[in-house]
């Protein structure tokens, strides 16, 4: 597979009145063409901020991309001109946000908002753009799309609005679609529809998808590979099967253990992770998970573990003790 996106040592911070927020702390990985990558983690783990950094959508100030490279399609997106990045955004690199109601303009019709993108990015005239918009809305499953171009966002239900957002994201045939919690605000039966839709479109159009979510179940369903993030670091990365079946990082183990599952005996007590997610303002050196980790040793407090290969080259983990934990001797 050809590499589509390569991120090297990305670091993003926010300079706030309360102190410096260490939101993303040196993240490196790549996405192949046509791949679905899941990015999981809890609130404040840096999953959304790292995606916004890729798109250069971090408000500056207070935010600042301190260092790193984002190679996409032969360009480092962090060094190109503002004009160039505007062409990439919404074109070859598109994003779908969590809350469709607040990312659509409530005062403009759905049709206008998609047509606008098409005329700007692809230089279509109005008639071509309208025809393409109708096709896109039909493709994402909006019934009677032709007659809904003149409708405003509030006239659609939550699930339908998310479909409109997806149609908008797909309008310029992106090579990579970043979907930031696209189903979190939706009910399960509607979530299943959207998951199904994005999987189908990905297969038909051959684009790559980065699916950001806190829901491990959704990741197991859609993704091929997964990055698990904690406190602005990737702590474990590998194929979905490796990460879910041969889990190596104590945080991932804890996260899976704290979920009740429909296929398990419900009588067992959940193994909750003790403590709270870290405060990113005074992030101390050492492993970010050390405070909550049951396997913590002296080394964890002093040195930040690097992301290293485990049994398989493609399955990496950032933990000093992963081998002992895997062998059950920790």
């Amino acid at each position: 597979m050809n590499e589509l996106l390569r991120i090297k040592d990305l670091q993003t911070r926010f300079y706030t009145r309360d102190g410096v927020v260490h939101a993303v702390n040196g993240v490196s990985y790549s996405i192949d063409e046509g791949e679905i990558l899941g990015v999981v983690g809890e609130s404040g783990c840096g999953k959304s901020v790292h995606a916004l950094s890729i798109m250069r959508l971090i408000p500056d100030p207070p935010g600042k991309i301190e260092r790193g490279e984002v190679w996409f399609d032969g360009q480092d997106l962090l060094t190109v001109s503002d004009e160039e990045i505007r062409k990439v955004r919404g074109g070859r690199l598109a994003m779908v946000f969590q809350d469709p109601m607040s990312s659509l303009n409530p005062a403009m019709t759905i049709g206008f908002q998609i047509v606008e993108a098409l005329t700007l990015h692809l230089g279509m005239n109005n008639k071509q753009a309208e025809a393409r918009t109708t096709d896109l809305l039909t493709m994402v499953g909006i019934p009677d799309a032709k007659n809904r171009l003149e409708d405003y966002p509030h006239q659609f239900s939550g699930g339908m609005r998310q479909r409109v957002m997806i149609a908008m994201g797909l309008s310029c045939d992106p090579k990579l679609l970043i979907a930031d919690e696209p189903t979190t605000a939706l009910d399960v039966t509607i979530q299943a529809q959207i998951v199904d839709l994005i999987k189908r479109l990905q297969a038909e159009l051959g684009m790559a998808v980065m699916w950001i979510t806190h829901d491990l179940g959704v990741v197991a369903d859609v993704a091929e590979r997964v990055n698990v993030m904690y406190a602005g670091y990737i702590v474990e990365r590998g194929t979905v099967r490796d990460v879910f079946k041969r889990t190596r990082h104590p945080y991932t183990i804890g996260l899976l253990g704290s979920l009740p599952r429909l296929d398990e005996d419900p009588g067992t007590e959940l193994s909750a992770i003790p403590g709270l997610p870290p405060d990113l303002i005074d992030l101390r050196p050492g492993c970010p998970f050390a405070v909550r980790c049951t396997y913590v040793v002296e080394q964890c407090w002093n040195e930040t573990p690097p992301l290293e290969p485990t049994e398989s080259e493609r399955h990496t983990v950032a933990c000093w003790r992963w081998e002992e934990i895997a062998q059950g001797v920790a």
């Binding site: 239900s157 939550g158 699930g159 339908m160 009910d187 399960v188 039966t189 509607i190 979530q191 299943a192 529809q193 998951v195 199904d196 829901d215 491990l216 179940g217 959704v218 990741v219 197991a220 369903d221 979905v240 099967r241 879910f244 079946k245 899976l256 979920l259 599952r261 429909l262 296929d263």
Partner: peptide, 27 residues
Amino acid sequence: QALMSAVPVPDPDLQEARVRIILEGDI
């Protein structure tokens, strides 16, 4: 039945083996 089949299970093997009933339309 549909509601239960729509809940994603955090296990790729089980997820593959499941039969999904996807409801059409909204409430």
